[in-house]
């Protein structure tokens, strides 16, 4: 069959394999597919159909979640090119970048200790700006320049930023309770 589990996530949703995608179209395709494969459509049918439905719905969810978020989308695109982002093993980051990370951490910690909700929100806004810049960089590296090693490094950096985002969320949560 032409359409099967070996098909990549972009094909599944009828999209071109690019970093810059039409999110509205992704969403629409995802919904179209889920409304056909979701287990709720097969609850009254045979075990065989229910099993296939669960596999497909699981796959559609995985594909959608992967393509929806910039970090996972970039990582997946690189994987399709045979480039592993090595986020766990390759920790050789530029000293300047690591210094900036330390400063971020400190600022979050300070705001958390001071129970400064406004300060944390401010940090979040600033972080979101940085994230947007990195997404633009990924679009350039992946779609225009096809510079995959550089894109892999940006993905590694992005991973650090997502951790910061998570930390800000936790800090906000901790001062609310």
């Amino acid at each position: 069959m032409a359409l099967d589990f070996n098909q990549d996530f972009f094909e599944l949703f009828g999209l071109q394999p690019r970093f810059q995608i039409d999110l509205a179209k992704l969403e629409q395709s995802y919904r179209d597919i889920q409304s056909r494969v979701h287990p709720d459509r097969f609850a009254h049918l045979s075990q065989a159909e229910r099993r296939v439905s669960m596999q497909w719905a699981t796959r559609a969810n995985e594909a959608y979640q992967t393509l929806k978020r910039p970090l996972t989308r970039a990582r997946y695109l690189l994987l399709l090119q045979g480039v592993h982002t090595q986020e766990e093993t390759n920790t050789a980051m530029p000293a300047e970048f690591l210094m900036a990370q330390l400063e971020w951490r400190e600022a979050i910690q300070d705001a958390r200790s001071a129970r400064d909700g406004h300060g944390l929100m401010h940090l979040e806004t600033k972080l979101n700006r940085d994230l947007a810049e990195m997404h633009e960089e990924l679009a350039r590296l992946l779609d225009a320049e096809k510079n995959f090693p550089a894109a892999a490094e940006t993905v590694r950096k992005l991973r650090f930023y997502e951790k910061l985002q998570h930390e800000i969320g936790e800090a906000l949560e901790s001062i609310e309770t």
Binding site: M1, A2, L3, D4, L12, G14, S29, D32, I33, S35, R36, V37, E49, V52, S53, W56
Partner: peptide
């Protein structure tokens, strides 16, 4: 196969 056909139809 039924599922594949249905997904293809969706696309």
């Amino acid at each position: 196969r039924r599922m594949n056909a249905s997904i293809r139809q969706a696309l």
